[in-house]
């Protein structure tokens, strides 16, 4: 019963936030909507006893990522209302058809029983995603710790590599100046922002 209430409340918040993301003319409001959705999901995670994931969700997503988004929105200077009219001729009808198609496809999948393996009958089993549990699963290396080697060890290391690459990439992008083009266009006409490209 309690869970039903939480589901209803937080579900509503999540949906509202999501629609806010999509509908808001001003990206800042969009970011706020996204943050609301992320918090609502964090609550669901707690309900599912995934405490560690919930905490990470709040800190990394609702905290760091949203902050980064807001920072970029401010930097780019689009904290102003934008035009929502469509410029690509067939984009909107096509998109709508595709979305309807997705709904139909999802329904078809459920009806044909392709989702039965997900929706199990009976009581939900108890899995606690405590920090110890998660840690053991991520990085236990074998016998000395008394557990078998984690099957997530390799993906874990791979993600660390991914993060390094991403960090390097972001820094490289930050330092990148299309020098030659700037110089060339600078010689032709000195006006900034006129290099709208070919």
């Amino acid at each position: 019963m309690v869970e039903l209430v939480i589901f209803a409340l937080m579900g509503a918040v999540a949906l509202a936030g999501a629609i806010g993301v999509v509908r808001a003319r001003n990206p800042v409001y969009g970011a706020m909507g996204l943050m609301a959705t992320l918090f609502a999901l964090a609550v669901f995670y707690v309900v599912h006893l995934a405490h560690f994931v919930a905490v990470v969700q709040v800190i990394v997503y609702a905290g760091a990522v949203i902050t980064l988004f807001l920072f970029v929105i401010m930097f780019v200077g689009v904290d102003r209302a934008e035009d929502l009219t469509e410029k690509l001729a067939v984009q909107r009808p096509v998109a709508l058809i595709v979305l309807v198609g997705v709904v139909v496809a999802a329904g078809a999948l459920v009806v044909t029983g392709n989702f039965d393996w997900v929706i199990t009958s009976g009581e939900p089993q108890v899995v606690t995603g405590t920090i110890e549990e998660i840690g053991e699963n991520l990085i236990s290396v074998g016998p000395p710790s008394g557990r078998e080697a984690s099957r997530w060890l390799l993906p874990f290391e791979a993600t660390s590599l991914l993060l390094i690459v991403a960090a390097v990439g972001a820094i490289a992008l930050a330092f990148y100046r299309p020098r030659r083009k700037d110089e060339a266009s600078g010689r032709r006409d000195a006006g900034p922002g006129s290099g709208s490209g070919p």
Binding site: L88, Q91, V94, A95, V98, G101, V102, A105, A106, A108, L109, T112, N114
Partner: peptide, 22 residues
């Protein structure tokens, strides 16, 4: 050259796969 067109095509592709599964 329009990213969103690619997005639509991607979704169409996904739909085909789902259709296949159904």
């Amino acid at each position: 050259g329009f990213v969103r067109t690619y997005g639509s095509l991607l979704a169409v592709g996904a739909l085909v796969v789902v259709g296949w599964i159904v």
